[in-house]
C-alpha cells in the first residue's frame, strides 16, 4: 500500500537518532520470545471440530494440577473419569486443553474397556496461570467436562543462555 503524504511528513519529523534507537528497539523486540496465546475461541473451534455441536455436560471428569506451579515447564497433571470401564459403558477418548498456551491442544488419549480404569497422569507445559480443561467422550457418545486452575509463578533467575 502507498504511503499517504501525511504519513510521509510525519516520518520526516523524526530525527535520525530517534530512528536509530527505534530500529534497535524493534530488532530487540524481534529477538524476544514473543509468542501469542490461544484464545478461548480457538479452543471452541477445536471442540467444534472434534465433537461438532454435541452437548457437553459438567461432571464425571476430574482434572488435577497443583494450585501453584513453581515452573510452567513441567506441571504434574492427572485426569480421572468416573466410569465402570466395561464393554457396555466406557470412556473412548479424553482431550485436554490449555487455553492460554500458544497452541491450546495438550494431549488426546484413546482408551477402552481393557483399560480397567480411566486414570491418566502426565506432565504438561503451562504458559502462564490458567485453567486446564479436559473433555471425556463415552462409548454412548455423551461428553463430559471439567477443569482445574493452576497459578504459574515466574522464577527469579530465568535467563539461561543455553550451552
Amino acid at each position: 500500500m502507498k504511503k499517504t503524504a501525511t504519513e510521509n511528513s510525519r516520518y520526516d519529523l523524526i530525527d535520525r537518532r530517534t530512528l536509530i534507537k527505534g530500529s534497535a528497539a524493534a530488532v530487540g523486540l524481534l529477538l524476544l520470545p514473543q509468542v501469542s496465546h490461544a484464545l478461548p475461541e480457538d479452543v471452541e473451534a477445536e471442540i467444534a471440530e472434534l465433537f461438532d455441536t454435541r452437548e457437553i455436560q459438567q461432571g464425571k471428569v476430574t482434572v488435577t494440577v497443583p494450585p501453584i506451579s513453581e515452573n510452567g515447564y513441567s506441571v504434574p497433571f492427572a485426569v480421572d473419569v468416573e466410569s465402570p470401564m466395561t464393554e457396555e459403558d466406557h470412556v473412548v477418548r479424553i482431550v485436554v486443553f490449555a487455553e492460554e498456551n500458544p497452541q491450546p491442544n495438550v494431549a488426546r488419549f484413546e482408551l477402552g474397556p481393557r483399560a480397567g480404569k480411566a486414570s491418566i497422569k502426565t506432565r504438561i507445559r503451562m504458559g502462564g496461570t490458567q485453567r486446564i480443561r479436559a473433555i471425556a467422550e463415552m462409548n454412548d457418545g455423551s461428553l463430559w467436562t471439567s477443569y482445574a486452575f493452576s497459578i504459574v509463578t515466574l522464577a527469579a533467575c530465568v535467563f539461561d543462555p543455553g550451552t
Binding site: Y73, A98, A115, K117, S119, I120, K121, I124
Partner: peptide, 15 residues
Amino acid sequence: FAAIAANPFLSFFTT
C-alpha cells in the same frame, strides 16, 4: 502436542 513436558512421562492402566 508441544504442551507435553520434556522427557514425557505417562501413567495409565490396563487389565
